[in-house]
């Protein structure tokens, strides 16, 4: 209900506009037409893994999800669980974005009162694991083939039925992707993935870094 119509954010501001600076006059830098000011971000999009230690309270997940939506960040996956410390939960948030945008996401997360620590572990030495459970369509003629495939990919069969079997696979996201691609031709009746959980290698601990 503002009397002032909102300026629509320029989709590609200044891409074509020649910069039209004011006459700088005496004492100004010599170059007449400066290059357009760099916008924050705009770098290469890549997958980032964030680890967040949060207060274990109702509604924290909602706050994180709401903030990410409102700030226009798209979460690829989100895994939440308790830690071994009373009152602390851990979130692993996977999202695509350029480094500056993700840094902004981290700063926004820190504005939430219940967020204690956020770390971008992208590019650090980590162990990463994801679990998937797949219900694959099988027939008498291809069951053996599917079982062999599961075995080769270090999967495990959890349930066998006349027309389907359930296999589990755990590993890095790429390994899970690979498994899913392999069984896709047989027909995937159901698929569930937990989303990645990660931990940095070595002795450093994000939980111990949390000031309480």
């Amino acid at each position: 209900m503002s009397a002032e119509p909102t300026a629509s954010p320029d989709a590609d501001p200044g891409a074509q506009d020649a910069p039209a600076p004011d006459a700088p006059g005496q004492g100004a830098p010599a170059h007449a037409v400066p290059p357009p000011r760099a916008l924050p971000g705009g770098g290469d999009q890549r997958l980032h893994r964030l680890v967040a230690i949060v207060v274990d309270k109702p509604g924290v997940l909602n706050r994180v999800a709401s903030l990410m939506r409102a700030r226009n960040f798209n979460i690829d996956s989100l895994a939440v669980s308790r830690t071994d410390r009373e009152g602390l939960s851990r979130m692993t948030i996977s999202l695509h974005g350029d480094d500056v945008a993700v840094e902004q996401a981290i700063k926004q997360l820190y504005r939430l009162i219940d967020i204690l620590k956020v770390q971008d572990v992208t590019g650090e030495a980590t162990v990463e694991h994801e679990l998937a459970i797949v219900k694959v369509r099988v027939t008498d003629s291809n069951r053996a083939e599917v079982l062999k495939l599961v075995e080769l990919t270090r999967g495990r069969v959890l349930d066998v039925a006349p027309d389907a079997l359930i296999a589990e696979i755990s590993g890095t996201e790429a390994e899970v992707d690979n498994f899913v691609a392999c069984v896709r031709d047989f027909g995937i009746r159901e698929l569930v993935r937990t989303g990645a959980v990660v931990m940095t290698r070595g002795g450093a601990s994000i939980e111990e870094a949390v000031k309480r």
Binding site: G14, P21, P36, R37, P40, V100, Q104, Y110, R111
Partner: peptide
């Protein structure tokens, strides 16, 4: 338009909220 904003200027930005720094202008 941020692209044509203060084209000759370097910027020192003081704010109590870290999320405001680098949000709209580098």
């Amino acid at each position: 338009n941020v692209r044509t904003y203060a084209p000759y200027a370097r910027i020192v930005h003081v704010d109590i909220d870290p999320a405001e720094i680098g949000k709209n202008v580098a």
